[in-house]
């Protein structure tokens, strides 16, 4: 089943040279869309929850829930970008920047006895 998807994508987008051959192109996008996406979304969610609570003095329960509600929209949007962005290099670059930003800010923020 996956093979016919790859073939269609390669056929319909002959100008796409940045992603390499069709099979690796799709594999790389799936990797970006699911595991890498979950990692980046988790980091962003934790970061938003922490920053809302610590820097904007939002009630921590409110902050956690707000970030969690947003996370599904973020995850779905990243999936769309993972298959919509033409350049695979750009895709991974954006994922890396978003993950580093979320993870970095989270790491710098004071934890106050939280699990993470």
């Amino acid at each position: 089943m996956a093979r016919s998807g790859v073939e269609t994508s390669a056929k319909s987008r002959p100008s796409d040279k940045t992603g390499g051959s069709g099979r690796w192109n799709v594999a790389s996008r799936i990797l970006a869309a699911v595991p890498a996406n979950y990692l980046v979304t988790s980091l962003l969610t934790a970061c938003v929850a922490r920053l809302l609570a610590q820097c904007l003095a939002v009630n921590p329960a409110e902050a956690s829930v707000a970030a969690t509600l947003l996370s599904f929209a973020v995850f779905a949007t990243i999936v769309l970008f993972a298959f919509g962005l033409r350049s695979i290099f750009q895709l991974w670059l954006w994922l890396f920047v978003a993950g580093a930003l979320g993870g970095g800010l989270f790491w710098l923020s004071p934890g106050m006895g939280a699990r993470l």
Partner: peptide, 30 residues
């Protein structure tokens, strides 16, 4: 979307983990 939200903290527990030591601390607060 709301279906995902019904079990949100199971699928995406990291928002709560960022501010609470464990789940029961969160549910006690709420």
């Amino acid at each position: 979307f709301t279906g995902l939200v019904t079990l949100a903290t199971m699928y995406m527990p990291w928002g709560i983990a960022a501010n609470y030591a464990d789940r029961s601390a969160f549910s006690n607060a709420v």
